[in-house]
């Protein structure tokens, strides 16, 4: 590890100024990803600006019903928050399906969204990787491909985004509040993470020095309350997703009044399945319709022999997640299907 200066900024503005002014400075949150990267030699910053103690650690309901989550709310506290549990269960389920109890106590909301891919080559400095070293090549293409993206990948990078939380936030139309040199800006989750294109070294649309200060969830609704998260992984616990699904479903009798579907483990960013949602909205709910909608969304998928399993897996996981929500909906209304 390279020589390193550690600073505790006085407030968020001070933190932003310190990192914006120095290309070799980085924000430090809970450290569960960044400290690992220091050890692995993936990252060689000169300065760490520790934002984890800034007083951005509250969950507050704004007058219009928006739920504001400070960036320093730890993953465990967000998962256990009574309002999140009852009104945005997909968020609690996604968090509880990730990492371990200890790590969730340490990991912050902003740090979770900005964690980097678990691509095995990205984490191994002895192999070429465009994300780590632009222009060096991609070892995953033609290499170990089991975790590769099936949607939106490029010739430069086929990595997937590892966050569970981000997938739930994408489904629920969350907004990330960001502080930069020129003040605050609000970035919808759908614009927060990027596809790799020619620049896989850049995961998000944030500029260097922009600080996540909070994440906002829209006011709770029938849809947010009927949300869920399903994750498929190699072990029952403490493993990253092979694929995952965040979903929300509002039925009017048998008719889909509204639906949200986002996928994890399939792309360089949480993948909002907008075409599948569109195909289902206003239609009669059935498992066949859900599978057909997933198929439509997956029409553009590109797979190799190692990751072709992800197509039926994400389709089945989507059907499973929505069936669970539909069953609960009919339990509530006494409808039979």
């Amino acid at each position: 590890m390279k020589e390193l200066t550690y600073v505790r900024p006085t407030d968020a503005r001070d933190a932003v100024a310190r990192v914006s002014d120095d290309p070799h400075a980085r924000f430090l949150g809970g450290g569960t990803n960044l400290v690992d990267h220091l050890k692995l030699g993936l990252l060689t910053p000169d300065v760490l600006v520790d934002v984890s103690r800034l007083p951005l650690d509250e969950v507050t309901r704004l007058d219009d019903g928006t739920l504001r989550i400070g960036t320093n709310v730890r993953n465990s506290d967000l998962a256990a928050h009574p309002v999140v549990r009852s009104s945005y269960p997909a968020v609690t389920r996604a968090l509880l399906a990730g990492a371990s109890g200890q790590i969730r106590n340490q990991a912050t909301t902003g740090g979770n969204l900005l964690q980097r891919t678990r691509c095995v080559y990205f984490q191994d400095v002895t192999t070429p990787c465009n994300k780590r070293e632009p222009g060096s090549g991609c070892s995953a293409i033609g290499g170990y491909g089991r975790y590769d993206a099936v949607l939106g990948a490029s010739e430069a990078c086929v990595a997937t985004h590892p966050s569970d939380l981000a997938v739930a936030l994408a489904a629920l139309d969350a907004v990330v509040v960001v502080l930069g040199r020129d003040g605050e800006r609000r970035v919808p989750m759908s614009d927060f993470h990027r596809l790799p294109g020619h620049h896989p070294e850049t995961d998000t649309t944030l500029a260097h020095g922009e600080l996540v200060t909070s994440v906002e969830l829209p006011p709770e609704s029938a849809l947010t309350r009927a949300s869920d998260y399903r994750k498929v992984r190699d072990r029952a616990s403490y493993a990253f997703a092979l694929v995952s699904v965040a979903a929300a479903l509002e039925l009017d009798g048998d008719v889909v009044r509204d639906v949200r579907i986002a996928w994890g483990g399939v792309a360089h960013r949480p993948w909002r399945a907008a075409a599948a949602e569109e195909a289902l909205r206003g239609e009669t709910y059935s498992e066949e319709a859900v599978r057909a909608a997933a198929e439509l969304e997956l029409a553009a998928a590109v797979t190799g022999p190692d990751n072709a399993y992800k197509i039926p897996m994400v389709r089945n996981a989507t059907a499973y997640a929505l069936r669970g929500l539909a069953d609960r909906s009919s339990e509530r209304t006494g409808a039979t299907r």
């Binding site: 450290g31 760490l48 984890s52 106590n105």
Partner: peptide
């Protein structure tokens, strides 16, 4: 490497002492 840090369970390998 788990300890109780400020009363909560916490890893010590993925965090810097200065923090």
């Amino acid at each position: 490497c788990t300890v109780l840090l400020e009363g909560r369970r916490h890893l010590t390998c993925l965090t810097l002492a200065v923090a």
